[in-house]
Each structure stands twice: as C-alpha cells, then as structure tokens.
C-alpha cells in the first residue's frame, strides 16, 4: 500500500489543466504552491502495481516539466 510524495514542476501553459486533472485523479492528492510553479503530488495506492501505473502516468504526462520523488513508504498488506 504505497504512499509516495513528489515535487512536480508543470509546464507553465499546462499548469491549470494539470492541476485540474491530477486533482480529479482517484489516487492523487495535489497541493499547489501559492507563489511558485510547483505542486506537491501525493499518491496513495492500494498495491505496488497500481503505484507503478500511477507513476508511469505522471512521468509520461506532457504537462509536466519535471517530477522528483521525495518520500516513499511501501507497506504490503501482509505487513
């Protein structure tokens, strides 16, 4: 059950749509900076496979300039 946080730097022209898109994503929580072009994105997924899918989605998103993983906690269900 991974919980991962990222710093995400949006392309300026895609900032608003990216924020809306990620906010609507079932496994993402987004906290935009108030005074800079950066978001904190937290993914909370039920298993590693979903986490991988969400990460790939983020990494390949055309509206993102850069994605930096900051913190990760992976707890498997049996734990």
């Amino acid at each position: 059950m991974p919980v991962i946080s990222y710093l995400a730097y949006p392309e300026k022209q895609h900032r608003a749509t990216l924020l809306a898109e990620l906010s609507a994503h079932p496994y993402c929580e987004v906290i935009p900076a108030e005074n800079a072009d950066v978001f904190i994105v937290v993914t909370d997924t039920p298993d590693r496979q979903t986490d991988e899918t969400v990460r790939t989605y983020l990494e390949q998103h055309h509206g993102l300039l850069c994605l930096a993983m900051i913190h990760g906690q992976v707890e498997d269900p049996q734990e």
Binding site: V3, I4, S5, Y6, L7, E29, I31, P32, A33, E34, N35, A36, V38, I40, V42, D44, A68, I70, H71, G72, Q73, E75
Partner: peptide
C-alpha cells in the same frame, strides 16, 4: 503516512525554492 509524505515534500520544496508557500 500521507501527512509525513507531504511534510517531507514541503521541506524539500522550501529548500529548493526558498520562500515557497503551500496552502
């Protein structure tokens, strides 16, 4: 755990972009 992950990201962001604020 989510709060912890957010807290880490806030710390990292504040170091990379001094003065940055998040609601």
């Amino acid at each position: 755990l989510k709060n912890l992950a957010i807290g880490s990201a806030l710390t990292a962001a504040s170091q990379l972009i001094p003065g940055v604020s998040f609601a």
